[in-house]
């Protein structure tokens, strides 16, 4: 295992950034698997710097008003709504 093998604390930190709760056994499992996977990803160090001249062009369309999903349809999959709005949890 390389020096910078992942620690359980790092797995918890990344999970917090990604807003995914983890049970203790998930932390153990991911710590073990991430060490192996990231060690494999380290082979990217051997990739030379490459000139990346992507021939990309923006595709624009006129900014015109057009029909969109109606409110009732848009709200149909939400667990809770209020006065035609989505209802979410408290921000803090």
């Amino acid at each position: 295992m390389s020096d910078d093998a992942v620690s359980p604390e790092e797995v918890r930190h990344v999970a917090e950034l990604a807003r995914v709760d983890l049970a203790d056994d998930e932390v153990d499992q991911f710590t073990r698997q991430f060490a192996e996977i990231l060690e494999y990803f380290d082979a990217l160090d051997e990739v030379p710097e490459v000139e990346r001249d992507a021939e990309l062009a923006n595709v624009m369309r006129p900014d015109e008003e057009r029909d969109s999903l109606d409110r009732e349809e848009a709200l149909r999959n939400a667990r809770e709504t209020e006065d035609g709005y989505f209802k979410g949890p408290n921000v803090s």
Binding site: N77, A78, R79, F86, P89, N90
Partner: peptide
């Protein structure tokens, strides 16, 4: 919030999102 499994409404939004996603 807009679709998918809900984490409920207890706690703040980071907590309920993290519950839904777990």
């Amino acid at each position: 919030v807009r679709y998918g499994r809900s984490g409920g409404y207890d706690g703040n939004w980071n907590e309920t999102f993290a519950t839904a996603r777990q």
